[in-house]
Design a protein around this nucleic acid. Structure first.
Lengths: 198, 198
DNA sequence: AGGAAATAATAGCGATCACTACAATGCCCT
DNA sequence: AGGGCATTGTAGTGATCGCTATTATTTCCT
């Protein structure tokens, strides 16, 4: 009985950060529940034990992809809400920047954090919701800096509008049309804010 | 060896339509991917073969729940866009009706069709997208009836805004705050439409 | 009453899920 | 050179996925 040792493919190191990037694209495109560990290990060209040694769990990797997204593609709020802009101008810029970001890559439409919070998996959901809440609070702070008395109301409006942009992009609205909606939304709000004295 | 026939529970008829209603609640709350056939058969108190005999497949039942939702909870566009209202008034009413609908039942937030289109399953996705497209076209027709030259632009804006309401409700925004956003959004748009001569 | 059609129940199908035990391989340090 | 150790490989875990073959039961029609 020929029991000689099976040949084994030579061992290759694999780049953890590159794995996070590839996983981010997959999660963004198909959602947390739409990507299995098998698809991830195949995309990273590794095997399950390496996957778990590197990232702990599927949900753990998902969290790292979310953090990467915020760090690399998060909207620059402090720049958008610069002091030399009126609140209306700033929010218009925010709308346009978000619409551009959400529809730029047709392969990964919408806000990764917002869309990621729709995962059926409770762990993944909780992580995405937590990060999303941080973004909302940052927007609230930026708005409150210009208009403290209307901050709550305007934050609800802005965040809801941004959610709409993300969902529209995710549903396939083309970049040009989404940007037109963003400009229009900003224009409507800016006119109102100007007419009511800031 | 006592091989006497096992007792079988007496046979109960089951109400197909009631099954659709129960499934609708489950799908709406947890999403298509978040509800397994096991959960459905348990909720309907039937067994898998009865399930498939009645509904064909999980995706088939999902389609029936979507149709039920549209028939029973679809927004009454022809009433909202009645002729004695300006376009701004009509869209404001649409926004408020949608916000109310999406946030009324905390257990089933958002638009079932819109949120259903996020399913990872391609069949379920396709069905929800198709029905959603029909709703969008109905909105487009209603708007074009008032303002044919701006119908495309305004439909993009309105649909994107409604998507935002649905997503915000789904994310947990309370009814009162969502309604405030809806009133504000309608007000902004109505002012613009009035100022530019309808 | 008796046969046919319809519907339900038991039990289990293959596939995929996230995840892991264990052995072989490579690199670094002594 | 050789031991320690981290990391990879193969192979497979139990659980759940959507779904079904088969049998048992009831109802309806003649």
């Amino acid at each position: 009985m020929q029991e000689l040792k099976r040949q084994r493919r030579p061992r290759r190191e694999f780049d953890r950060e590159e794995g996070v990037a590839k996983a981010q694209a997959l999660f963004h495109r198909h959602g947390f529940d739409g990507v299995g560990v098998a698809a991830l290990t195949e995309a990273l060209d590794i095997h399950p034990p390496s996957f778990y040694a590197a990232y702990g769990s599927k949900a753990g990797l998902f969290e790292r992809t979310l953090e990467r997204y915020v760090a690399e593609q998060g909207l620059p709020l402090s720049e958008i809400f610069s002091d030399d802009r009126s609140l209306g101008e700033a929010i218009t810029h925010l709308f346009i920047a978000a619409a551009d970001q959400y529809s730029r890559d047709a392969c990964c439409p919408g806000c990764f954090v917002t869309e990621g919070a729709r995962a059926a998996d409770p762990d993944a959901r909780a992580v995405a919701l937590k990060i999303g809440q941080q973004m909302i609070e940052a927007i609230h702070v930026a708005i409150a800096n210009h208009a403290p008395d209307q901050a709550d109301k305007l934050t609800d409006f802005v965040v809801t509008t941004l959610r709409g942009f993300s969902a529209a992009a995710y549903a396939g609205l083309q970049a040009e049309r989404l940007l037109a909606v963003a400009r229009y939304s900003g224009e409507l709000l800016a006119k109102e804010l100007d007419s009511t004295g800031r």
